[in-house]
Amino acid sequence: MPSILSLIQNENMKIYRRIGTWFMIGLLALSTLAGALIIKATYKEPKNWKAEVASEIKEMEAQLSEEKVPKMYKNHLEQQLKINEYRLEHNIKPVASNTFWGYLVDSADIIALITLFTIIVAAGSVASEFSWGTIKLLLIRPASRTKILLSKYIAALLFALCMLLLLFVFSAVIAAVVFGIENIREPYLAYQNGTVVEKNMLLYVMQVYALNCVDLVMMTTFAFMISAVFRNHSLAIGLATFALFVGPQITALLAMKFDWAKYLLFANTNLAQYIDGTPLVEGMTMPFSMMMLLVYFVIFNALTWFIFRKRDIAA
């Protein structure tokens, strides 16, 4: 009986021996470069950041003095206010897009592209075996279907991890070259237990990356499920990308009218809403969202596993 490691090795071979995969990696590098160049060309440095921060503070104070401010939003404003005051006191510039760290934070937006690529890889790893007809020779080996499915899932997530590392490295190198590294010692300001604290910027970037990966993992799992259930590559890619790009909008619209929208997947994928923003539906908390994500995660995986294990391989 083969070990799960050799099965993963097989799946990796099938991912990286294809030109499409390298095309994706090239596209990722290109997007990172293009992003930096566009910011370099279009970003306008504020003449006096202190004046700008001061005016922001005034605006916030005005908003806070209004009567009907929702509690969640009020908290958020107060935190931002404190952080801005700290900046002026300690002479710490806000992180701008045209700096090393600013670009690394912005590069997290490119994770949407990685999500798309991982969806393509994950959907393909099951559906393609069916369309190529290779599924028959794959499943008549002394490896249970559960093991084979698991190896494919792990290989897809490893691909995502690999792409994330590449994105980070690409972004860091490009940001260093394009924007320079003179601000590399800049701290990240966070609000903790009533006070503003200085934190490591690298940890903050990693946190931003991690938060952006929630979508990635959930959509990859979703695409994997569609692919195993319908054995159709295009359908899996189509449904997952459609959900990825349209899901949050529809959820936001529903959340304005209905309370139950908080149980929808996309109401919970954006965990950043609890850190520096306001929750979609009042009363939602980080543990609630994590619980919901776990429930969806288990449902997706259980369905995939159940159907793949039972299926008759015909045609």
Partner: peptide
């Protein structure tokens, strides 16, 4: 090689 890895 792919199939070889699947059998001990």
């Amino acid at each position: 090689l792919h199939y070889a890895r699947m059998t001990k």
